[in-house]
């Protein structure tokens, strides 16, 4: 999918994406030559179609989490996923590895607008890693917000 500035006959560059509500997905593209900006507005069905492909318009800033599509879209049991440390196969888990996310924390992260989700995810991951926290849970997220002065996030 390419967006062309008709006046300049130039491909426009991706600017940002937002989810303003009502299931609407918005992506803004700007012409680097004349500065003209347009917004692509997708209805909930169109938004879901793009999401179903496991892609994001404009590209991803971070690699998707394992089974992100499954975890974000399947209505299933709350305990379907667990951190490696709490399952029987986890005896050899490397404690130096990055913190894992509990299903509840993943659900909560999914509610953060997508255009800042990567940044927010990194803040929580860094917070947990620096403190040796193996699993990020909603309680860890609350603590991080309090400690880092991020009450608005």
């Amino acid at each position: 999918m390419k967006f062309l500035c008709v006046n300049c006959d130039e491909q426009m560059t991706f600017q940002e994406r937002r989810e303003p509500g009502d299931g609407t997905f918005a992506a803004a593209f700007t012409c680097a030559r004349c500065g003209h900006t347009i917004a692509l507005l997708a209805n909930p069905m169109e938004s879901q179609l793009v999401r179903s492909l496991g892609v994001e318009i404009g590209g991803r800033t971070l690699d998707p989490e394992p089974m992100a599509l499954v975890r974000e879209n399947v209505v299933g049991r709350a305990d379907a996923f667990a951190a490696a440390s709490s399952t029987p196969q986890s005896a050899t888990r490397n404690l130096q590895s990055p913190p894992t996310w509990s299903p509840e924390a993943i659900d909560r992260l999914a509610r953060v607008p997508s255009f800042v989700r990567g940044m927010v995810r990194k803040i929580y991951a860094d917070y947990a890693a620096e403190r040796g926290i193996a699993e990020i849970t909603p309680a860890v997220m609350d603590q991080a917000r309090a400690d880092l002065g991020l009450e608005g996030m």
Partner: peptide
């Protein structure tokens, strides 16, 4: 299940 989330991916059930 449950399936274990690990840095290398989701661990399959045994």
């Amino acid at each position: 299940g449950p399936l274990a989330l690990s840095p290398e991916g989701v661990r399959p059930a045994l």
